[in-house]
Design a protein around this nucleic acid. Structure first.
Lengths: 249, 249
DNA sequence: CTCAATTTGTTCGTATGTATA
DNA sequence: TTATACATACGAACAAATTGA
């Protein structure tokens, strides 16, 4: 697939007589991508209608549809029924869907896929620690503190707090100038929280520690204390890490 | 999309009268995923033919086709022309294709997307450093050393060495018990190397340093020296980091 | 509010290319 | 080589959703 991508750029996609190995759909998706680039379209811009694309590319509507579907699942285009097709925001939803399925399919060990995801989350949080602390040092974030309070309250009642949890992690990365890492963290967070219930895993006992660790992370970041932030991240992943047997060097 | 995923598990996908918001394709993809889970199929296993799926799910051929396409681009199934449809290996090809397009589309600053990718690569390499060193300490890896020698030789001749570079990074992570991180590193490596040429970026001058840094990383890992490994990683990303303005805390 | 136009969603039938036995 | 099974592609028709007159 990599070679196909590469060949799609540089030289414009060749005309109708396509190479032996390439399928019609592959070439059509490439043509639509090239069209977006050639026209200089940006996320949110409207694409031609399916019928128009058929004429422009000289293929049937079915082929255009399949190509558009492919681009749609990749988030490259966004199709709205009865309205039109737009250039998409290219979120990581596809990655999430794939990893979630891999998690519930669980090849080999039942917990391996989830353990890998948690390990990545940990690496990203630790790896971005200095940048996060730098971006939040000296600021005050009442919204994030409110989320922490809610999480602690929910944990005390024995309830889960996925909404606040996600909002907190998203908010923590919001000031970073790296949009991709925020999306990745969100994506892995989602895989994590969607897969856990399907495995019947019970980590409810330590929900309190998890909730409190969020507060410690925020306090450390606002104080500009990277070491404390690292410690809080470690504390945050301690319960789930133990349950899954994550190695923490 | 997240809600749709969640609803797909737990309770089996409902019968033909589907909910208001869900499209036929969305429910059909869910049904196929449920089928794989229910039958306990594993990557490489054969799925029913399209015609058979039509009867089983009570939808038309086209709908099955579009659903299979969607799952195919996610890597959940693998369609082989004239042969059949199999459960896929679920690689990160979809993520790569999306990020590559985002990179060449370059919303806003031309280098931001690539800079974000390089930053992630850096974080992953540093974050996995201790685990990599632990997995390679005390071993000898003539294959990896050979790759380093090739890279140094190619750099001396002023040639690029993408094949060896990729093989090296893959091999470095091969002994890890976390398959996902290896795939992620490979994916971001691919995005990086595919996008760079489209931007006309010239970092050829410091190819020599990059090639040598690989050798330092390998030596440090085999010696069990995590600090040296971190230093080598920093040296490895120094040239491209300077060219892109990556922040290195 | 209803109607009509536009656009995507779904289905069917048919023909073609491809791999296996 | 032939036969069979399968995926690929095309075109036409109708259904559903959205917008605006």
């Amino acid at each position: 697939m990599a070679a196909e991508i590469r060949s799609s750029y540089g030289a414009p996609t060749p005309e109708v007589p396509r190479g032996a190995g390439a399928s019609r759909r592959a070439t059509t998706t490439g043509q639509i991508k090239d069209f977006i680039l050639a026209e200089g379209l940006r996320p949110g811009d409207l694409l031609p209608t399916e019928t128009e694309l058929c004429e422009r590319l000289g293929v049937s509507r079915s082929s255009v549809r399949e190509a558009v579907r492919t681009l749609s699942t990749l988030g490259i285009v966004d199709v709205r029924h009865g309205h039109g097709t737009y250039v998409g925001a290219m979120s990581l939803d596809a990655l999430v869907e794939m990893l979630v399925f891999r998690g519930v399919l669980s090849p080999g060990d039942d917990l391996r896929a989830l353990r890998d995801v948690v390990e990545i989350r940990q690496v990203l949080d630790h790896g971005m620690a200095e940048r996060i602390v730098a971006s939040l040092a000296g600021t005050s974030n009442p919204g994030l503190h409110a989320l922490v309070d809610e999480m602690v309250a929910e944990a005390a009642e024995g309830r889960a707090f996925p909404r606040q949890d996600r909002a907190f992690h998203t908010g923590l990365l919001a000031r970073l100038d790296n949009a991709l890492v925020g999306q990745l963290v969100s994506a892995f967070w989602e895989v994590h929280t969607v897969v856990v219930p399907t495995l019947g895993l019970s980590v409810a006992a330590d929900m309190d520690q998890t909730a409190r660790a969020h507060g410690l992370m925020l306090d450390a970041a606002e104080a500009g204390d990277a070491r404390a932030f690292h410690a809080a991240v470690t504390s945050h992943y301690d319960p789930i890490g133990k349950a899954l047997g994550v190695t923490t060097p």
